Computed example of a mutant assay.
Amino acid sequence: MDALDDLDLRVSGCRACPRLVDWREEVARTKRAAFADQTYWGRPVPGFGPPGARLLVIGLAPAAHGGNRTGRMFTGDRSGDVLYQALYDVGLASQPTSVAVDDGLELYGVRVTAPVHCAPPDNKPTPGERETCRPWLVQELRLLRPTVRAVVVLGAFGWQATLPALAEAGWRVPRPRPAFGHGVRVGIDGSDGSDGSVAGGGPEGLELFGCFHVSQRNTFTGKLTPAMLREVLSTAARAAGLGK
Results as ranks from 00 to 15, higher is better:
residue 212 F to V: 13
residue 226 P to T: 03
residue 26 E to L: 09
residue 222 G to R: 04
residue 58 I to Y: 08
residue 147 T to Q: 14
residue 167 A to G: 13
residue 187 G to M: 07
residue 118 C to K: 08
residue 87 L to W: 08
residue 205 G to M: 00
residue 193 G to F: 08
residue 58 I to C: 13
residue 244 K to F: 14
residue 226 P to Q: 00
residue 136 W to L: 09
residue 223 K to I: 01
residue 123 N to T: 04
residue 170 G to N: 00
residue 175 R to F: 07
residue 184 V to Q: 09
residue 51 P to G: 02
residue 32 R to C: 07
residue 69 R to S: 09
residue 1 M to V: 09
residue 121 P to A: 15
residue 179 A to I: 01
residue 194 S to H: 06
residue 132 T to P: 02
residue 82 V to D: 03
residue 143 L to D: 08
residue 123 N to Y: 15
residue 138 V to K: 10
residue 106 E to Q: 09
residue 153 V to K: 14
residue 208 L to R: 01
residue 9 L to N: 14
residue 202 G to Y: 04
residue 66 G to P: 09
residue 2 D to P: 07
residue 27 V to W: 08
residue 18 P to F: 10
residue 86 A to R: 08
residue 128 G to E: 15
residue 83 L to P: 15
residue 194 S to A: 12
residue 114 A to D: 15
residue 146 P to K: 03
residue 47 G to M: 11
residue 231 E to L: 14
residue 27 V to L: 13
residue 222 G to Y: 05
residue 87 L to D: 05
residue 19 R to A: 02
residue 205 G to R: 02
residue 237 A to I: 06
residue 153 V to N: 08
residue 210 G to P: 07
residue 110 V to H: 05
residue 7 L to E: 10
residue 236 A to W: 07
residue 61 A to P: 14
residue 106 E to Y: 10
residue 94 S to H: 01
residue 134 R to Q: 15
residue 34 A to F: 01
residue 236 A to V: 05
residue 16 A to W: 05
residue 127 P to H: 02
residue 107 L to F: 09
residue 97 T to S: 06
residue 194 S to P: 00
residue 159 W to P: 02
residue 21 V to I: 05
residue 50 P to K: 06
residue 77 D to S: 07
residue 122 D to C: 13
residue 98 S to Y: 04
residue 143 L to A: 08
residue 67 G to D: 05
residue 92 L to Q: 01
residue 89 D to P: 08
residue 25 E to N: 04
residue 50 P to Q: 04
residue 197 S to G: 14
residue 201 G to P: 07
residue 115 P to Y: 04
residue 67 G to S: 09
residue 32 R to D: 12
residue 239 A to N: 00
residue 49 G to I: 12
residue 66 G to V: 03
residue 190 G to M: 03
residue 103 D to Q: 13
residue 18 P to G: 09
residue 51 P to Y: 00
residue 53 A to F: 04
residue 38 Q to Y: 05
residue 43 R to C: 01
residue 70 T to K: 01
residue 62 P to I: 07
residue 31 K to N: 03
residue 216 Q to T: 06
residue 211 C to S: 08
residue 215 S to M: 02
residue 106 E to R: 15
residue 166 L to K: 02
residue 178 P to H: 07
residue 151 V to Y: 06
residue 199 A to P: 05
residue 67 G to Y: 11
residue 5 D to M: 10
residue 173 V to I: 10
residue 242 L to W: 15
residue 126 T to K: 14
residue 45 V to F: 03
residue 233 L to T: 06
residue 108 Y to P: 11
residue 112 V to D: 00
residue 192 D to T: 01
residue 159 W to V: 07
residue 201 G to A: 06
residue 16 A to Q: 15
residue 203 P to E: 02
residue 39 T to P: 02
residue 219 T to Q: 10
residue 198 V to N: 14
residue 221 T to F: 02
residue 121 P to E: 13
residue 140 E to F: 12
residue 37 D to V: 07
residue 86 A to H: 13
residue 214 V to K: 14
residue 136 W to K: 10
residue 174 P to A: 01
residue 98 S to H: 11
residue 53 A to W: 07
residue 125 P to K: 15
residue 50 P to I: 01
residue 35 F to T: 12
residue 126 T to G: 02
residue 38 Q to M: 13
residue 190 G to Y: 01
residue 43 R to D: 00
residue 24 R to E: 13
residue 157 F to W: 11
residue 236 A to E: 02
residue 61 A to F: 06
residue 48 F to A: 05
residue 243 G to C: 10
residue 193 G to W: 14
residue 176 P to Y: 00
residue 188 I to Y: 03
residue 32 R to G: 11
residue 237 A to K: 11
residue 14 C to G: 03
